[in-house]
Design a protein around this nucleic acid. Structure first.
Length: 541
RNA sequence: UGGAGUAUGGUGUAAUGGCAGCACGAAGGCCUCUGACUCCUUGGGCGUAAGUUCGAUUCUUACUACUCCUGCCA
């Protein structure tokens, strides 16, 4: 059953025998890190591979050496693997530079391409406008022999950068600007990250991409909407290069998330200007940033499935993404307890002994196992979990009230101390035999709160990263006015279970006082948590 | 009259010439050793106008709105 219009096309092609095997491709230009928008494309292309038992190639579309770098190809591969996708062939567009050159020669011989001496400015000026046709280049009707010689000389380095280009000879009067004799080769003396200095002639996307697809026998070349106008040129290219069973291009609307920065250009600027720490800064909507912040591959893939594929431009509510993360973490993340703003609770009827308690790692997942936490006379609870004057419907500890310590006993209020109007200490008694399974375990209490033993608490740093947001105040499209990076808020004085220290880096944790967190790194003996996403809070709203 | 594309609840996305479904969000409630989750309930939609038809969200036309297109970027 097709989930979207592209899958419908694929299924139809399969049923009618147009294709017996589906081959897609993911063709990033290695000029930046992958972001959540790429995840959508990944899910579409690899999703088709998986669903219809086809293939999907990873191809680096590296036709512009001035913008590309190996750092990016490495990161892209890492991110795709992390998301759980396996590509079939791994290629570089630059692997085909030799073949592309031959196709260019073929076009020249067919009279379908010519060497043009116009400058970039002149080409722009003679291209016409949206409403007016362009003017034909004075070099348009050079002889095939002359074009062949000139093109060979361009390759040999006889001409300086920008002095000559190869153009497809199509139609300067076309309503589609892409068909007005598009440039297909330019001279660029730049060292290529993959081919070094082997070439100083580089093909343009519109020429290269259909050829790359055709060489790899791609059946469905899926790209974003802005390439719709390029499709006639794509088809012209495969036809004039003589491919008998050419690939076809299909377009979908790119992903937009409300208030999130999704443009690679802007993301790059954030990195270069030092607004963020790097492409993997937890505030970045990059795959690596989201990974660092604690998002799971499963959550990201679920999000892409939820968002769907269509041709209408839209803006997804970030709440959908947050829901997908919560959903996955709720099912799979181990729980620990933590308090952000500690309040000391002294248990008057507890001696100096330490009691080990066995608690489940994840109540939703029996296979997740258990771990030991230690209970003692002095514990910390969250400051907001005690209220001298409770607001209506308060479900936590109040003077005269009872509350359960998660994983341990029921607590009964005895007294509290205040300094300058601030609660400094609370005294309670523990209800005997009120642990799970105890005779008093069934006592109805107002609620359940988290706690950490004072002697066993591990100091933690909570990094409350928030997403980078667009400032919507005036709708100004200018970059600098729209970026509104939330400042990093580090909360010290927080404590987590000692058990957290024993965990492996990269393990996922939750503590659900008011948010989800992931243990991100240990630094200088401290544990660093990143806040991923807020929970719904039916009390505070 | 430049060309191309799109239009379904607040958001995203389906299906269909005949009851418009799902998810997120929202509102209310039950439950709870996570005020989470689960569960229950509620509200909310086919851009406008004509036409074809017994019947149109679906087909046709016009209109309107939005997006993309004048890189030797991809």
């Amino acid at each position: 059953m097709a989930n979207n219009f592209i899958e419908s096309i694929v299924e139809n092609d399969l049923e009618t025998g147009v294709h017996s095997e589906i081959i897609t491709r993911f063709p990033p230009e290695p000029n930046g890190y992958l972001h959540i928008g790429h995840a959508k494309s990944l899910c579409i292309n690899f999703g088709i591979k998986e669903k219809y038992h086809g293939k999907c190639n990873l191809r680096f579309d590296d036709t512009n050496p001035t913008k590309e770098d190996v750092e990016y190809v490495d990161s892209i591969k890492e991110d795709i693997r992390w998301l759980g996708f396996e590509w079939d062939e791994e290629r570089f567009a630059s692997d085909y530079f030799g073949q592309m050159y031959d196709f260019a020669v073929q076009l020249i011989k067919q009279g379908d391409a010519y060497v043009c001496d116009l400058s970039a400015d002149e080409i722009r000026e003679t291209r016409g406008s949206l409403t007016e046709p362009g003017k034909e280049s004075p070099y348009r009707n050079r002889s095939i022999e002359e074009n062949l010689r000139l093109f060979e000389e361009m390759r040999a380095g006889k001409y300086p950068d920008g002095s000559k280009v190869l153009r497809a000879k199509i139609d300067m009067a076309s309503n589609n600007l892409n068909m007005r004799d598009p440039v297909i080769y330019r001279i660029l003396r730049a060292t290529h990250h993959h081919t070094g200095d082997a070439w100083l002639l580089y093909p343009m996307y519109d020429f290269a991409h259909p050829i790359e697809d055709a060489i790899e026998n791609i059946t469905h070349s899926i790209c974003t909407l802005e390439f719709e106008d390029h499709r006639p040129l794509y088809d012209w290219m495969t036809e004039h290069c003589g491919f008998v069973k050419p690939p076809h291009q299909y377009e979908f609307a790119r992903l937009n998330i409300r208030n999130a920065i999704m443009s690679k250009r802007y993301l790059k600027k954030l990195v270069e200007t030092g607004v963020v720490d790097g492409w993997d800064d937890p505030r970045m909507p990059t795959i690596s940033g989201m990974r660092k912040r604690g998002y799971t591959p499963e959550a990201i893939r679920a999000f892409c499935a939820e968002v769907g594929v269509a041709k209408a431009n839209s803006e997804v509510d970030p709440a959908v993404l947050e829901h997908c993360v919560r959903d996955d973490l709720n099912a799979h993340a181990d729980r620990i307890m933590a308090v952000e703003e500690p309040l000391l609770v002294v248990l008057d009827n507890v001696g100096d002994e330490i009691e080990s308690l066995n608690v489940v790692n994840n109540p939703n997942d029996p296979a997740s196992g258990t771990h030991i936490i230690r209970f003692a006379k002095e514990i910390y609870i969250e400051r907001s979990d005690f209220a001298v004057v409770p607001p209506p419907k308060y479900h936590r500890l109040v003077p005269g009230g009872m509350v359960r310590l998660k994983g341990a006993y029921i607590l009964q209020y005895v007294s509290h101390k205040e300094e300058n109007g601030v609660v400094s200490e609370v005294h309670c008694n523990v209800i005997p035999d009120s642990k799970e399974g105890g005779v008093n375990a069934g006592i109805k209490v107002k609620g359940v709160i988290q706690w950490v033993s004072k002697f066993d608490a591990v100091p933690a740093v909570l990094n409350k990263y928030e997403c980078l947001l667009l400032d919507e105040v005036d709708g100004n499209k200018e970059f600098d006015d729209r970026i509104n990076p939330h400042s990093l808020e580090v909360v010290r004085g927080a404590f987590v279970e000692a058990w957290a220290l024993e965990r492996q880096e990269g393990d996922r944790f939750q503590f659900m006082r008011s948010a989800y967190y992931k243990l991100a790194e240990k630094k200088n003996g401290e544990i660093l948590f990143y806040r991923i996403v807020g929970l719904k809070d039916s009390y505070n709203k």
